[in-house]
Amino acid sequence: MNDIKSAFENGKAFIPFVTAGDPDLATTEKILIEMSKNGADIIEIGIPFSDPIAEGVAIQEADLRSLASGTTTDKIFDMVKRVRSEIKCALAIMTYMNPIFVYGTDKFMRRCSECGISAVIVPDTPFEEKQELSPFCDKHGIELVSLIAPTSHDRIKMIAKEAQGFVYCVSSMGVKGGSITDIGEMVNLVKSVSDIPSAVELDTSTPEQARKAVQNADGVIVSSAIVKIVGKYGKDCIKPVCDYVKSIKEAIS
């Protein structure tokens, strides 16, 4: 079974991101189950990193809250494994190279596989460095998602040719959020060399922005909107998160 592929088979895919362990893993567990019930097609589970340089302040703060509450990579895997059968959608791990490398890349991918995780997204590991990951991903059947950015230009075809799972389009220039730029053109370049689906990342998104974004892509990734809701409501975030997930899923359906 290819979970990632099937996630793109029923219309536009909705891919929310959540930082594991913020405010605690019990809350993350509920968020995963409820998001999958309310329209998420793939959930990106963020393993917190002390220094998330590719992300803005909202996710950095969530990472630090999570680490302060005692979250570790092992505890995240244990939680996902325990509740995997209750989560109906595909799961991807998003984290930085160092937590994977120091954990042991082989062991990390094996744990992903054991926990029913289909893909990994590693924003500080570009095409040129993917050998650090891909042999271990291949060995354990984990797809290594490739990222492209508005600055990628001539690199897009090279990246897309070897991409797995889906292509993650970083839409806003940089990490602090910004305008949607040239998404259609980026996705067209991907399509010219591969039939792999493309999903567009929005930092925080209104339903209207999500609807616009998927006009030119196969799915939408919401990177910090849910993190911000969790940051605001803490353990009481389940209902507002569900309401938000529903609103985006409806908007793009």
């Binding site: 590719a54 924003p123 095409f127 040129e128 990222l147 950015a149 600055t151 990628s152």
Partner: peptide
Amino acid sequence: GGQFVPETLMNA
């Protein structure tokens, strides 16, 4: 060594 940076910076 190496070049472990976000894709956004690779062309730069």
